[in-house]
């Protein structure tokens, strides 16, 4: 059972909710990016965020950090809400964490990024990544989390976070290269 401190008296609820939203809303953008890239579609992502919001509100009494700290706190809750949901059904993605990270970087993403269908192409490639790699990229690039924050919220050693990110980028590059040939 996770420890939590539910907000005390009901008559306080409105005030408590206002304080909670002040803390959490600035991070909704990041939370949304994470949920969207974890879940299969937007509808599922909305459910994940909604569940996370409710959990966050419930745990809020035990949270004592700043608005800045709240980002990693909230993202961790989003992540848990996703993995607890039926939507997760952990796919048996096999992660190749042993092989070399060195790949052929001779292609140029810069040119790809200028194509008219660049956004669609990138999204399709990201969807092909194992979710464990994809979430690393999202947490780092879109939510701006540090290695330490990612390590804390995923329970992975920082070294693994580092190597997963390297592999995620390498695999993404490989997929992009493959689709353009």
């Amino acid at each position: 059972m996770k420890p939590f401190m539910p907000p005390s008296a009901p008559f306080n609820a409105a005030e408590q909710t206002a304080r909670f939203e002040q803390l959490a809303l600035p991070h909704l953008h990041s939370a949304w990016q994470l949920a969207r890239w974890l879940a299969r579609n937007d509808a599922q992502a909305q459910e994940v965020v909604q569940e996370a919001w409710l959990r966050a509100w419930r745990y809020f009494g035990g949270f004592s950090g700043t608005v800045e700290d709240a980002r990693a706190w909230l993202l961790a809750i989003v992540r848990n809400a996703f993995y607890d949901s039926l939507a997760a059904q952990r796919p048996n993605d096999v992660l190749d964490e042993e092989g070399s990270e060195a790949i052929d970087w001779t292609f140029n993403p810069e040119q790809l990024a200028e194509r008219a269908d660049a956004k669609r192409m990138l999204e399709a490639a990201l969807r092909l990544l194992p979710v464990a790699y994809r979430e690393m990229l999202v947490l780092r690039e879109l939510a701006g989390c540090s290695y330490e924050e990612i390590a804390n919220m995923t329970g992975l050693p920082p070294g693994t976070v580092m190597s997963r990110l390297a592999r995620a980028r390498a695999q993404l590059a490989q997929i992009l290269q493959g689709t353009t040939r």
């Binding site: 993403p109 956004k119 990201l126 879109l142």
Partner: peptide, 17 residues
């Protein structure tokens, strides 16, 4: 290439709430 990929992700993998 890595830098370009990062820029691209930050630009195009984002969706408005």
């Amino acid at each position: 290439a890595q830098q370009a990929l990062q820029t691209w992700i930050k630009r195009d993998a984002v969706q408005a709430v």
